[in-house]
């Protein structure tokens, strides 16, 4: 009984992401745009590009998550779907987590999977480390979507909440961005960083749903 609203929220988020033309392709376009514009902006020197590539992709991933998240809870508040889910007595935190997870699946995970292509465009060496980086982008993206989801849930009743979400999410994105970029730097500290990244993502998974749930109950009032 209490599982069904969570499932329906998850399914609805999936269809929502694919429907309406842009959907899941929008963050991908955003990601590709950043990857293509950066070499035009900072020059085409291969060593420079190789050095900044992973960092640029982290920034693009963070920004792409913000682009997706702007409306994920707003539509549910407006069309009353949120009220229906909450009336069934399902925990708001699980509904919120299901939605954030669905959006990570449709917008975050594809970016991570395509990351080797963009890494190659940034002159990265084609070896197995690109596959490991894929995992790191996926993991870090999960944290981005959950913390960004907190911003989205808090500003669900605010029209044009995009700027607000960015402002709220920015400080929360810091640990993930630092650990993620550090893990790929290859320098000192890069061996422990993947563990820290995993730990901070787990922390996001543990804490963010409750904050999102509280924010959604507020939005439904």
């Amino acid at each position: 009984m209490s599982a069904s609203p969570i499932l329906s929220a998850f399914r609805q988020a999936l269809t929502e992401a694919w429907a309406g033309g842009a959907g899941a392709l929008m963050p991908l376009g955003f990601f590709a745009g950043a990857a293509v514009l950066v070499p035009l902006g900072i020059g085409t020197d291969p060593t420079t590009l190789r050095a900044v590539g992973p960092g640029i992709l982290w920034v693009a991933l963070a920004l792409a998550s913000l682009v997706t998240l702007e409306r994920i809870f707003q539509a549910d508040v407006e069309d009353g779907a949120l009220d229906l889910w909450l009336q069934t007595g399902a925990p708001a935190s699980m509904i919120a987590a299901a939605k954030a997870f669905a959006h990570w699946l449709t917008a975050g995970l594809p970016l991570a999977i395509l990351s080797p292509i963009f890494a190659l465009m940034f002159q990265a060496k084609a070896d197995t480390s690109l596959l490991a980086h894929m995992g790191l982008y996926a993991l870090g993206g999960l944290a981005f979507f959950f913390w960004g989801g907190v911003g989205a849930a808090l500003s669900a009743t605010v029209r044009r909440g995009g700027l607000l979400i960015s402002l709220i999410a920015l400080p929360l994105y810091v640990p993930t961005a630092i650990f993620g970029a550090l893990a790929m730097s290859g320098g000192p500290g890069s061996t422990g960083a993947p563990l820290f990244l995993a730990a901070s993502t787990l922390f996001a998974l543990a804490v963010a749903p409750f904050a999102m749930g509280a924010a959604l109950r507020l939005a439904a009032d």
């Binding site: 907190v150 640990p175 650990f179």
Partner: peptide, 26 residues
């Protein structure tokens, strides 16, 4: 909304501090 955000921020402060310390120590 403010209370939720302030609390989320507060529990993140140690993590932010730790990550920034790690970043800068290198």
């Amino acid at each position: 909304a403010g209370a939720i955000l302030a609390m989320v921020g507060a529990i993140n402060v140690p993590l932010i501090k730790f990550s920034v310390d790690l970043f800068t120590s290198l």
